[in-house]
Amino acid sequence: MTVLVAYVPRPEGQAALDKGIELATQNNEQLVVINAGPGGRSEDPNVVSGYEVERVEERLASLPIKAELKVFVRGNSAIEEIEEMVQTLQVSVLVIGLRKRNPVGKLLLGSMAQEILLNVPCPVLAVKAD
Results as ranks from 00 to 15, higher is better:
residue 2 T to R: 00
residue 3 V to Q: 03
residue 4 L to M: 09
residue 5 V to Y: 12
residue 5 V to A: 09
residue 5 V to R: 15
residue 8 V to H: 03
residue 8 V to K: 03
residue 8 V to M: 04
residue 8 V to F: 01
residue 11 P to H: 03
residue 15 A to H: 07
residue 16 A to R: 10
residue 17 L to M: 14
residue 18 D to F: 00
residue 18 D to L: 11
residue 19 K to V: 12
residue 20 G to E: 09
residue 20 G to Q: 05
residue 20 G to T: 00
residue 21 I to E: 04
residue 21 I to L: 01
residue 21 I to T: 05
residue 22 E to A: 14
residue 23 L to N: 08
residue 27 N to I: 02
residue 31 L to N: 06
residue 31 L to F: 06
residue 31 L to W: 06
residue 32 V to G: 00
residue 34 I to E: 02
residue 35 N to T: 04
residue 35 N to A: 06
residue 36 A to D: 07
residue 36 A to E: 07
residue 37 G to R: 05
residue 38 P to G: 15
residue 39 G to R: 05
residue 40 G to Y: 07
residue 40 G to V: 05
residue 41 R to I: 14
residue 42 S to L: 11
residue 42 S to N: 09
residue 43 E to R: 13
residue 44 D to G: 03
residue 44 D to A: 12
residue 47 V to E: 01
residue 48 V to T: 10
residue 49 S to E: 12
residue 51 Y to E: 14
residue 51 Y to M: 07
residue 51 Y to Q: 15
residue 52 E to K: 14
residue 52 E to I: 13
residue 54 E to Y: 06
residue 54 E to T: 14
residue 57 E to I: 02
residue 59 R to K: 13
residue 59 R to N: 02
residue 60 L to C: 04
residue 61 A to L: 02
residue 63 L to P: 09
residue 64 P to W: 02
residue 65 I to G: 04
residue 66 K to Y: 12
residue 67 A to H: 08
residue 68 E to C: 04
residue 70 K to T: 14
residue 72 F to Y: 14
residue 73 V to T: 12
residue 74 R to A: 11
residue 74 R to P: 01
residue 75 G to V: 13
residue 75 G to W: 14
residue 76 N to I: 07
residue 77 S to Y: 03
residue 78 A to N: 02
residue 79 I to F: 00
residue 82 I to Y: 01
residue 84 E to N: 10
residue 86 V to Q: 02
residue 86 V to S: 02
residue 87 Q to I: 02
residue 88 T to P: 00
residue 89 L to C: 12
residue 90 Q to I: 10
residue 90 Q to R: 15
residue 90 Q to F: 04
residue 91 V to Y: 01
residue 94 L to E: 08
residue 95 V to G: 03
residue 95 V to L: 06
residue 95 V to S: 07
residue 96 I to P: 11
residue 96 I to S: 01
residue 96 I to W: 01
residue 97 G to E: 07
residue 97 G to W: 04
residue 97 G to T: 08
residue 99 R to I: 13
residue 100 K to R: 13
residue 102 N to H: 06
residue 103 P to T: 13
residue 104 V to G: 05
residue 106 K to I: 14
residue 106 K to C: 04
residue 107 L to A: 15
residue 108 L to S: 11
residue 109 L to H: 11
residue 111 S to V: 08
residue 112 M to H: 15
residue 112 M to F: 12
residue 112 M to Q: 14
residue 112 M to G: 10
residue 113 A to C: 13
residue 113 A to Q: 13
residue 113 A to T: 15
residue 116 I to Y: 05
residue 116 I to M: 05
residue 116 I to C: 09
residue 117 L to C: 06
residue 117 L to A: 04
residue 117 L to S: 06
residue 119 N to Q: 12
residue 119 N to A: 15
residue 119 N to E: 14
residue 121 P to H: 15
residue 122 C to L: 07
residue 122 C to P: 06
residue 123 P to K: 12
residue 124 V to D: 04
residue 126 A to N: 02
residue 126 A to T: 09
residue 126 A to M: 15
residue 127 V to G: 08
residue 129 A to C: 11
residue 129 A to M: 08
residue 129 A to I: 08
residue 129 A to E: 13
residue 129 A to Q: 08
residue 129 A to P: 08
residue 129 A to F: 05
residue 129 A to V: 07
